[in-house]
Design a protein around this nucleic acid. Structure first.
Lengths: 212, 212
DNA sequence: AAAATAATGTCAATGAATTGACAGCAGGTT
DNA sequence: AACCTGCTGTCAATTCATTGACATTATTTT
């Protein structure tokens, strides 16, 4: 069984396909061709076919793709057919906002707990879960099958906490701290560097001004 | 004056360079070679030199790069030498969290106001600014030189609001809504699709499980 | 002051990603 | 039932991005 590695460029596009297919599904549309998708999504039809084919061909010649089926399959590829338990580390503004943001549940990401090092927050209820002290993190991860930790803590603390999470067997870290984490390859890290994103926007604004 | 287009691949790496250079600067380090940076950042020295050279060569043969100078120059390229006024549209969890997150100010992004369509929130103070009604958005943008609008509203409303922002001359939109906005090319959009990011993490976790 | 060293800027080579082209098959039509 | 049309899967061509190599120049050492 030889599985070829799929490039992250392709993976990065899957959630967008997933989103558009979900919309088509909600509109009751049954079939779609790569050309139609191309028109809606503003990417080439060739790329769409190439991308889907990495996973073995979901379409039928002369017909196109079945929306419902393709949606399901991409969901499976993304691992959305299984649910993931997640905890949030850092009950600051961002941590609380993410905890309260209900939409992730829809895709099987279950909010299981939130931790902070500030004793003043202990016991405060956020989305029906009490803020727990950092010391209890490891035990909680182990006994509740936590897959994903969301890091919304200052960058100075992120690396140390990441190490502790690695030690208790976390599978993935969704990192909002402005620092690159150093973890073994069996732990997946997905960075959301908000200020990097804002700087890119700033660059593009400046560039456009100059080109006038 | 022929300015060649810089690829977004390069731009996407600039904030990371900027971050590492800032750290070196804070440590009081004066000079750095592409090889040293390569070791720290885990990218090839060749890429670093190639990237910097897109903007005209900041280094000196036999010496390397002056940290302070390079930091400044990358900041300028990213447009961080000028300040940007921003408003937040949507005073929900995420909107409030971003408003309260002070770190953007450090890079010249000034929080100037926050808007919501919910009358119950009008007047509530967030970071010393009262939540304003959506109707007042256009007037405020025009009279306060607002460059950037941060969209933290549901996807159903995002497109319409974006159109209104375009009409009153906004330069950039930092879009947290789960939808692709359709705006003219003179308006820059930077998307932060959190659920897409989470799905990528989910994929990488699943993939790793399977490969064992 | 000359020689040795260090490290850039840049060109060429390689590798990866995207696009274009089309054979071949399924579905629809006459 | 035969023909036509539509659209995938895939191969080849092209474009874009990354890496490697090195001539050149500044700095440091002797």
């Amino acid at each position: 069984m030889e599985e070829k590695e799929i490039s992250q460029a392709v993976i990065g596009r899957l959630p967008r396909y997933f989103r558009y297919l979900g919309e088509l599904k909600d509109q009751g549309i049954e079939r779609v061709s790569s050309q139609e998708l191309s028109d809606i999504m503003k990417v080439t039809a060739s790329q769409i076919r190439q991308d889907f084919n990495n996973f073995g061909g979901f379409g039928q010649q002369g017909y196109g793709y079945n929306v419902e089926y393709l949606f399901q399959e991409i969901g499976k590829i993304l691992g959305l057919d299984k649910s993931h338990n997640l905890i949030i580390i850092g009950a600051g503004n961002l941590g609380q906002a993410l905890a309260n943001y209900g939409n992730f549940e829809r895709r099987g990401f279950l909010f299981m707990g939130i931790f902070d090092k500030n004793p003043l927050l202990y016991g405060r209820k956020i989305r029906d879960r009490e803020v727990q002290p950092m010391e209890d993190m490891e035990a909680y991860v182990k006994s509740n099958h936590i897959d994903i930790a969301v890091l919304t803590i200052p960058k100075t603390e992120a690396e140390a906490v990441a190490q502790r999470l690695v030690c208790c067997g976390i599978k993935g870290i969704w990192n909002f701290a402005h620092v690159d984490l150093n973890v073994p390859e069996e732990v997946q890290v997905e960075n959301v560097h908000l200020s990097d994103s804002l700087m890119k926007l700033s660059y593009n604004i400046s560039r456009f001004q100059k080109n006038r």
